[in-house]
Design a protein around this nucleic acid. Structure first.
Lengths: 323, 323
DNA sequence: TTGTACGCGTTATCAT
DNA sequence: ATGATAACGCGTACAA
């Protein structure tokens, strides 16, 4: 198709002048400017991004690396990034890795090959050493805590337990059970320790019979409720690390004629749509905001407005009818 | 950083030879090849994608335009596309438009500016005329039915009702109720007409009292069940256009001591996670497959292996315990 | 098998 | 204010 040279020829000016018009630069008479614009219209000219990218050494594209696109967390994250990217005139190159190191390498290479100006990492299986190696080629922002000297913005997970516990305490629930997923994950550990710490520092009570772990599904929730039901002493509330498990507990409680929240208060985690459907008090992660902050930080890094930095976001308690 | 020229100098060969090594082309002695590879290692050379793109007139990036990233349908679609893209060595540039024409223009321009080799459209507010205008600049594949001469691959919606109705009939449910969302939408209309057609052509019965519309939420489902309960005659089954509404119906049925499916069979739509959690028979859209087919078609168009074509995908019935 | 020379389309520098 | 010319980094006919 038509390029800048043909425009110049038709408008009887130099390519430099065409470029100036294209980039709204000063020092071009309105007369010539008109001629150029006319030629552009006549030849149906469109600029070639690849040439611009090569010449400027910049693409205005940032990469985002996620294990799965089809997952509520990463989904919200990318969506938030998409919004702010539109505002900042950036494009988003998405790479779904399935946590495969080979697939992660694709994003790293895109950064090295200058196909993207920066890389946002939602979650990675690569080591901190590898990351700092890649970081030499271009800016990296991680959305989960990790070792290394790259920029980071992440959610303060221990904060979530504190929010629900305080809420339950204020509501007057004195005896509290806990139900978690994987107790060995980073999130699981920080939740457990935050719970223990709260119990120690309050007049609320807990019992080892009231602790459940490795519970992930709606079915698991029904089982938990049945197990609780068999105990001699029931807690007044149960803190659950997952909305689906919480939903299962509530479902089964209803069948057992246990009123929620009068007999047993239940809290979930993550504010999934099922929590809204069943009116479950839960914790909302500011994932959308996380995406926005990550892109803002990336934009700063690309344009050297700030040094590498770190940022944490707080969680949000959503009070519904289950407490 | 190091470029091809420096490699050539260090390896004492021409830039062409370096390029040949880089692209695994024949006609280069293993001796010189080694020298080049050594130089590449020494100078920590990485190729520059923008230069390659400019030279080849191709980026190996395809664009995907969606109204929202954070939406189960588009979410699955992008995920499916991501998988096949990795296999085909393509990258995915995602544009979240919020159904704003201005934001849609971004994708169109990316195609015109040769920033992407092709554009997949999940859903658009632009007219068929606009699309065929853009289609001149590069291949377009639409994932929803639309006028125009561009390639299309989409899901056969009327097929969904047929699948559940046949299933209910085979199971022996003779009297069937219907509960839809927006009756004026394209999907709503095709579902209603498919339902009516089935009733006419079978020995199943229906009554106007058993028809509900504009029901979207879990709460709405509970209301529907209460309304059904007041009727003199109850249907043996109810076909519902949304999993959350179906979940609400089942929830309320349990409270009213109506057994599911013994007294009332319930089917949902879309195979959301709540349908799995509550064991609801539902219809699964092959969205993942839709994404894969769209990218395959795009790949064919880019490499001129096929002419512009059209393709429809069938839905899938998932039988669970609610029928 | 290897090297030369030019093209890809644009921006940036430096004269004038 | 305008224009020639050199980058940007790589691919590729064509010649040798």
């Amino acid at each position: 198709m038509a390029n800048i040279t043909e425009i110049a020829r038709l408008a009887k000016v130099s390519r430099s002048t065409v470029s100036r018009v294209l980039n709204n630069q000063p020092y071009v008479t309105s007369q010539k400017k008109e001629a150029v614009l006319e030629a552009i219209r006549l030849l149906d000219y469109v600029p070639n991004r690849n040439a611009i990218n090569l010449s400027k050494g910049k693409t205005n594209i940032i990469g985002i690396m996620v294990p799965q696109i089809n997952h509520p967390f990463f989904n919200h994250l990318i969506s938030g990034m998409g919004e702010i990217c539109a505002d900042l005139n950036l494009s988003l190159l998405v790479n779904q890795t399935n946590s495969d190191p080979e697939r992660e390498k694709i994003s790293f290479d895109q950064l090295r090959y200058k196909q993207i100006d920066g890389l946002v990492i939602a979650s990675t299986v690569s080591s901190a050493t590898e990351l700092s190696e890649i970081n030499k080629y271009g800016p990296i922002v991680s959305c989960e805590w990790s070792e290394g000297d790259h920029a980071q913005v992440y959610i303060d997970h221990s904060n979530g337990i504190e929010l629900v516990m305080n809420h339950l305490k204020e509501k007057g629930y004195q005896s509290i059970a806990l139900c978690l997923g994987n107790p060995d994950s980073g999130v699981g550990k920080s939740r457990k320790s935050a719970f223990d710490k709260f119990i120690d520092n309050s007049n609320c009570t807990h019992s080892h019979e009231w602790y459940f772990e490795k519970r992930y599904s709606f079915e698991d929730g029904k089982t938990v409720m049945n197990e609780l039901y068999k105990l001699s002493a029931l807690p007044r509330a149960i803190v659950v690390g997952n909305d689906y498990v919480a939903a299962g507990i509530i479902h089964q409680a209803r069948l057992l004629k246990i009123r929620v929240p009068e007999d047993l208060a239940v809290t979930g985690f993550d504010n999934q749509s099922i929590a809204e459907a069943l009116h479950i008090t839960t914790i909302d992660q500011p994932i959308h905001q996380l995406g926005i902050e990550a892109v803002k930080m990336m934009d700063s890094l690309i344009n050297h407005r700030h040094k590498v930095e770190q940022n944490t976001l707080s969680l949000r308690l959503i009070i519904r009818q289950s407490t």
